[in-house]
Structure formats: structure tokens, C-alpha cells
Amino acid sequence: MIKRVSAWHLFRIFLRAGCLGFGGLGSVLVLIERDLVDRRRLLDAEQITEALTYTKLLPGSTVVQVVSYLGWKLGGWRGSAAATTAFVLPAFVMMLLLSVAYARVKDVPMARAAIDGVNAAVTGLLAVAMYKLGASAVKTWVGFVIGATALSVVVFFRAPIVIVVVAAGLLGIWIHPARLRATA
């Protein structure tokens, strides 16, 4: 059985995780495991894997959803709300500070040059992200067609992206059950 943890305690635990959570989903999971499994012994490693399994198919930030899931297991709805808020809070504050700084500095020529350099680097990072995402999500020619169609439809017809994604998802439902049945 999972030990019940107070909302306030969960807030403090995940506030710390939120402050230290650099490096994406993998790193944060390791962080959570070290803290909640090894150090505080509130969970087993399997329960973190379970959280990931059940949330990775859901839309939205997976790392936050793992936190929400674990928060619920440890402290119900209040625990989940406390854990999630605490986890996002440091990033929120920091992003707010960066936004304010940006607003002040963005037209200063010296800052402009640095910002332009950063933007160029971001392009490179996103290209790699796209490649990695593509490698995991686009495994069949059907996937390729969906991706290429989405790109074309948005570029040439300015289709609203939410509709494009929903349509692609529905297409996925239409196509895949046939395959699922075939492998059953």
C-alpha cells in the first residue's frame, strides 16, 4: 500500500524537483526516483514506471503528468494539485523573470546580436528535435504521408493546427483498429 503524504509535504518535495529538473523527462524521472524511491521510500521504482506508462499516451506535458499521477497516488486530489503546482512554479517564476528581462533588453543593439545568435542556435536544436521525434513517431509510410500532409495543409491552406492534429488522430483511429484486429 502507498503511504499517504500530506499536500504540504508533497508541495515541498515537488518544489525541489521543479527547481532541479533540468534536462528533460529522463533526468526528471531519475531525480524523482532518487528522491521518492531511494531517499524517502515513499514509492517503488515500478510505480514511477507505471505513472509514465499511463501518462505517456495522454496529450500534454508528460513530465508534469507523471508528477500529477504520483501526487494523486500519494495524496489524492489535493496532493496531486499541490505536487503539480509546486513542480511548475519554479519554471513559471524563472520564465516570468526572463520574459521581463527580454522585454527590456530586446531592442538594445548589443542584446539584439546575442539574441539573434541564440535564435540561430534554437533553429539547430529544433531541427534535431524534429529528427528525433520523426524517428520515433514516423515509422511507416502512412506516418510519413500524414506528416507531409499536415505540413502542406498548414503551409498552403493555413489550416488551423488544432483541426489538423485532431483530423490526423481520427485518421489514426480509422486506420489502426484494422491492424490491431489483424494482430489479435
Binding site: L57, P59, L126, A129, M130, L133, G134, A137, V138, V142, G143, F144, I146, G147, A148, T149, A150, L151, V154, V155, I161, V164, V165, V166, A167, A168, G169, L170, L171, G172, I173, I175, H176, P177, L180
Partner: peptide, 17 residues
């Protein structure tokens, strides 16, 4: 899962945009 398998490639395409 099937919805996600349709939506995910579309998102990759959008990332291209």
C-alpha cells in the same frame, strides 16, 4: 493509442512548419 499514432506524425509535420 491509435489517436496518438495518427496525431504524432502530424505533429512532426507541424514541427517542420
Amino acid at each position: 493509442k491509435a489517436f496518438g499514432q495518427g496525431a504524432a506524425p502530424a505533429v512532426v509535420g507541424l514541427l517542420g512548419v
